[in-house]
Design a protein around this nucleic acid. Structure first.
Lengths: 233, 233
DNA sequence: TAAATAGTGTCTCTTAGACAATATTAT
DNA sequence: ATAATATTGTCTAAGAGACACTATTTA
């Protein structure tokens, strides 16, 4: 339709607000957990939400996500990737808000205890037992994040981000099992890992209730090759 | 203090403009081609750009992309997925612009000839011989689109979107070869396709310079199964 | 019959997955 | 020795990839 003074809708050209929200995932307590913040006012007063904030004038989307991450957890060295952009009208009742969602994956021992030391209440939640009511469309965002993580686990080295620098193969396998939600065969898991040539033994061992487990580290020079093909082909 | 939506001071931030840009891909002339528009003013006057426009107040991001697509090509029934969001400051010298890029894949015979009938000059370009200077960061967006398409080709049914409803297996294989940029083995290609159980013969044949080729169609009820696992396992 | 194209079959090597066997520690 | 855990090996079926072969049309 031709636009005239009669039907001109000024609000049509209002610029939306843009936020960067970060799904921060880690392994804690033999569980895949996400950091959420409790909202203290309308809308979704009392609901839990993914941390995020407005993208500032002179920062990139990624910088905005990194800033949020740092403010919430103190973490700076982290795996971070853009997930998806959510922008349905009405997803925020206050105004039009477009949210660029990021996925951050880090090992629990990287996280600074001052996490959530700001006014807002913040805590870790199991991805498998989320609070009953999440703010906005944040349930969708978390769904999407889990799907993406599971997917990436199969053909990138993101899994190693969840563990400390040194780890045993049974620990690595447990991490995979927690994230994928299924048990893996010990022998086959190790076979794949060996073929991918992506970890190397440190020569040291970790005590267990039975035979000690050898410690491994992620091969730094493996990154280049892993980009090219599936980690577990 | 941590900035959240709670203490947001509207005056403190300039809101960015948000556009939805659509990479429209199709097979034409035994080639993978993309629809680009020639810019007629600063910035990037004379450069070619991906079609796109501002997201309006009451439409979703996807709706905005569909609207752009319809305006440019007349196509409504199309494969459309969100690609990535580009938002570096300075990518548009006029103001802060955040672009949600979409990938549209359609068969050439779906496209209405009124494509590009708007003032701007529009034409198809080979993805393998793009114009030398693209506007903004649109070279990055096209790079990303091709990567994603190649990737999706392997484990979704997106390839069938590029062909008419009925096609021969050599035609399908040629489409795959054009997109992947490599030759495929006839026998192995057909074996995979058979295993995936994703096409069915129509019983009709197409004339060629040699033995006629049987026409196939995409199995509609195959969609559900293809979602679950790789199309070509 | 020859050329051109469509369609099928076969062989080998690799991998996935299920499962079993062995190794090394603590109690 | 037994329990607990780590680590390695074996068997089978399926799939990938290279390649050769057969089938059906036109000229």
């Amino acid at each position: 339709m031709l636009e005239t003074a009669e039907n001109y809708d000024a609000s049509k050209y209002e610029r939306p607000s843009v936020t960067a929200d970060v799904v921060i995932l880690t392994l804690r307590e033999q569980d895949l957990q996400v950091l959420l913040i409790k909202r203290a006012r309308w809308p979704y007063d009392g609901s839990w939400a993914i941390p995020g904030g407005f993208v500032e004038k002179d920062e990139s989307l990624r910088q905005a996500a990194l800033r949020e991450l740092r403010e919430e957890t103190g973490v700076t060295d982290v795996y971070l990737e853009q997930l998806y952009t959510f922008g349905d009208p009405g997803r925020d009742p206050r105004t039009r808000v477009i949210t660029v969602a990021y996925l951050a994956v880090t090992s629990a021992d990287q996280i600074d205890p001052r996490a959530g030391s700001d006014a807002a209440e913040a805590r870790w939640w199991s991805m498998y037992a989320l609070p009953p009511s999440l703010a906005f469309d944040h349930d969708q965002i978390l769904d999407y994040a889990l799907t993406r993580l599971r997917y990436k686990l199969e053909y990138t080295a993101v899994g190693f981000q969840l563990l400390p620098k040194e780890f045993t193969l049974p620990e690595l396998q447990a991490a995979y099992e927690i994230i994928l939600g299924e048990m893996l065969d010990k022998g086959n898991f190790r076979k794949k890992l060996a073929r991918a040539n992506v970890v190397e033994p440190t020569g040291q061992y970790r005590q267990t209730a039975g035979r000690p487990a050898e410690l491994y580290r992620y091969r730094q020079d493996a990154v280049a090759e892993t980009r090219a093909r599936r980690l577990f082909p």
